[in-house]
Write a protein that binds this DNA or RNA. Structure first.
Lengths: 351, 351
DNA sequence: TTTAGCACTCACGCAACATGAGTGCTAACA
DNA sequence: TGTTAGCACTCATGTTGCGTGAGTGCTAAA
C-alpha cells in the first residue's frame, strides 16, 4: 500500500495509543498537547484529514475526533510484528513462570491456570486448547477391574496422553486374566496409530484374547473415539466477564451476543482451528469470520508439545485492544507452556 | 407470624406472579383487571396498604406500584414447599431424561450436561457439584508404567470413584513388578478409608513392596490428597450469562459483580457447602450470606449416590425468580441424576 | 365493608436549549 | 510551500422544564 510519512505514522500511532487507553474519539488538539510533536493542532488536523482519506482512521460523526479503522490497526500491528525479533525475557514473563509452576500436576490444570493467567494479565478473554496429537501412537493399554460389571480401560499414547473409559460387560475376567489381557493388548497395539490397526492386528488380538475376544471391538472403538478425530478438543476459557469492563460492551445486549457466541463450541473450533498451523495470527475486526465478533479482535498463537502435538492459545478483546501487550504476553505464554509441558513429560523435577 | 386472610394471600400471590413476569412494580388496577377477584382497585389498594404495613410488599417510591419484599417471597415459597408432596412425573421431567441420557459416559459429562439442562430449562444460572463421598473406602490401586521416569497411579474407591496421578521416580520397576506392586497395595489397602491407614499398614506395605518401598509414602500422600479433604470439590456451572437477560442486571456494573462473585471458588463452597445436609434450601435475597448476591435468590438441592455420597445442585437467579418452576425442575433433576448415577454404577445398560 | 371520586405524587419521555469538543476552511506568516 | 491562527460551523451530550400517565391515599357515599 501507500507508504506513510514518518509524521503521519507518528500521528496514527498517537491516535491508536490514545484510543486504546480512553475508548473515546481523539481530536487534533489532544494529540498536539499530550504527545508533543512540535506541531499545532491545525497541522495535525491536516494530516489527520489525509489519514482519513487513506482509510486509516475514521470520523464516527461529523464533528467528532478520529478513531482508528481496522486498516489503521492492521498497519500498526504489522509494524509491531516486524519489531518482534528482539524480544527477550522480561519481568512479566518471570511472573508468568511463577503463576504456572505453582500448579503443575495434570495437564488440564496447566491449561486452566494458563488461561487464568492470560486473562489476568491482559484483562481480555483467553481461550486455550489442550494439545492435540495427530493420530498418536499407542504406548500401552491397561485393563483394571472395577466391580462385577465394569472394567476400566486405560489407554496411554505417546506424549503420555491418557484416556480412561469404562467398559460394561458381564464377562469379567479374574485378576490374572486382567494382567494377561493388558499385556496382549499392549503388545499388539504398541507403536501403532489408529490408522495402522488393520485386519491382521484385529485377528491376532481376537485369537490371543480368547475367551474375552468380545472386548476387542469395544476397545478398538474406544481408541478410535479417543484418538481418531480432532472433534473432541478440550477448551479452557477464562476471563470472559472481562469484556464487561469495556465501554464497547456497556450495552448489555452486545455483551449478551458476545457471551452467546463464546458458548458455541463450533465457533471456538472455527476460531482456534487453523491457528495451529502458524505461529501467530491476528484478526482485526472484520477480518475474523465470526459474525458476532466483528467488533472484536482475535489473536491466536500455537504452542507445540513434543514433536507432533500442537495446541492453541487465543485472546479475544475489543478491536481497540492493546496489541503490543497482548502480543508480548502471548509470546511469553507460548514459551512458558512449552517449557512446562516439557518438564512435565521429561520429569526433570520432582514433586 | 401473623396469619394472612385468604384474600390478602391471593393478592400477594397475584403481585408476586405479575412481578415475576414483568419485573415492573404492580399496581392495584392491574391486579383488579388481570386477575379477576371481583374486587375494585380501591379495595385492593386498601389490602395492599395492609400488606405493606405487614412487610410483605414494598413501594419502591411514593406513587409507584408495589414490589414483593424478601419476606413476601418467603411466605410464597413456604406455601409452595408445603404443596410439594403431590408432585409426580410430568412432561418436563421426561424431557430431562432425554437430555441427560444422551451423554452418559463419564461422570463429569453427566454433571456438565445436567448443569446445561437446568440453565436451559430455567434460564437461570445452574451450579452442580460432583458427588463427594466422606472418607470413601479404597477398592483397588493400580500402578501402570508410562515411561522411563513416570508411573501412573490409579486409585479406585467405592462408588467407583477414580483418581489418577503421575508419580515421578527414577527407580522404575519392570513389567512384572508392576503387577506385583499393584496387588500388594490393593490387598493391603482394600476396604480401608484414609483414616484406617495406620502404622501397621504402612510397615506392612513397606516391607512387602521392597525394593520399591519409597513408593509407599508417595502413594499414601496421593490418597490423602484425593480422598482426604473435601476441598477439591469439582464444580460445573452453566448459564451464567443468562443473568444478562434480566432487567435487574441491565446495569453492566451489577452484572460484573455478579460474574466476579461466581468466579470465586470459596464463594461457591460457602454456597453449596451445607446444601448437602438437607434436601432443599432456599435463600431469598438478604437471607443468603454472600454480599454480592443480596439481590439474588439461591435454591440448592442435594442428590445422593449410593449410600454415602452426596452432591449438590444450585440455581441462582434474581430475587424475582420463578420459584415454582425452579423447585419443580430441581426436584426432577435430583431424581434424574440419582437414577442416571445408579444406572451408571449398576451397569444395567450397555453402550 | 366496599366502592367511586378526586387530589396529589412522581417516574418517564420529550423538546428546547446551552455547552464544548472538534472540524474544515481561509488567510496570514516564515 | 508548509505551518499556523482565527473563525464559523457541526453535532453529541447534558440540563432544564413541562406534560403525561400510572398509581396512590383519603374521603364520602352506597
Amino acid at each position: 500500500m501507500s507508504l506513510l510519512s514518518e509524521r503521519k505514522m507518528k500521528i496514527l500511532q498517537a491516535i491508536i495509543n490514545d484510543y486504546i487507553a480512553t475508548a473515546e474519539p481523539v481530536g487534533s488538539r489532544t494529540i498536539a498537547k499530550k504527545y508533543d510533536m512540535g506541531l499545532s493542532s491545525a497541522t495535525i488536523r491536516n494530516e489527520m484529514s489525509d489519514l482519513e482519506d487513506m482509510g486509516y482512521i475514521i470520523q464516527p460523526y461529523a464533528s467528532a475526533g478520529r478513531v482508528p479503522s481496522d486498516m489503521g490497526y492492521r498497519l500498526y500491528v504489522d509494524k509491531l510484528i516486524s519489531n518482534l525479533n528482539n524480544i527477550e525475557d522480561n519481568p512479566k514473563e518471570v511472573f508468568l513462570k511463577d503463576i504456572i509452576e505453582s500448579n503443575i500436576s495434570r495437564i488440564d490444570n496447566i491449561m486452566e491456570e494458563t488461561a487464568r493467567a492470560i486473562s489476568l494479565l491482559t484483562n481480555y478473554t483467553a481461550i486455550i486448547t489442550e494439545p492435540v496429537t495427530e493420530k498418536p501412537k499407542i504406548k500401552r493399554i491397561s485393563l483394571i477391574p472395577l466391580d462385577e460389571r465394569n472394567i476400566m480401560c486405560f489407554v496411554v499414547a505417546e506424549q503420555n496422553i491418557m484416556k480412561n473409559n469404562i467398559i460394561k460387560t458381564l464377562n469379567i475376567p479374574n485378576e490374572h486374566e486382567f494382567f494377561r489381557l493388558s499385556s496382549i493388548f499392549t503388545e499388539n497395539l504398541k507403536g501403532l496409530s489408529i490408522d495402522d490397526i488393520d485386519e491382521n492386528v484385529v485377528l491376532c488380538l481376537e485369537s490371543e484374547s480368547r475367551p474375552y475376544e468380545d472386548l476387542v471391538p469395544v476397545i478398538l472403538k474406544i481408541i478410535s473415539k479417543d484418538f481418531g478425530s480432532a472433534e473432541n478438543i478440550e477448551f479452557h476459557m477464562s476471563g470472559a466477564r472481562n469484556i464487561l469492563a469495556f465501554p464497547e460492551f456497556s450495552d448489555v445486549s452486545k455483551a449478551k451476543t458476545f457471551f452467546q457466541a463464546l458458548e458455541e463450541k463450533d465457533m471456538l473450533i472455527t476460531l482456534m482451528g487453523d491457528s495451529l498451523n502458524s505461529d501467530m495470527r491476528i484478526f482485526i475486526g472484520n477480518e475474523n469470520q465470526i459474525e458476532e465478533m466483528k467488533n472484536c479482535s482475535i489473536i491466536t498463537a500455537s504452542y507445540k508439545m513434543g514433536s507432533n502435538s500442537r495446541g492453541g492459545i487465543g485472546i479475544i478483546g475489543p478491536t481497540r485492544m492493546d496489541y503490543s501487550q497482548v502480543i508480548t504476553v502471548l509470546n511469553g505464554m507460548v514459551k512458558n507452556i512449552e517449557r512446562v509441558l516439557k518438564i512435565l513429560s521429561d520429569g526433570n523435577n520432582d514433586t
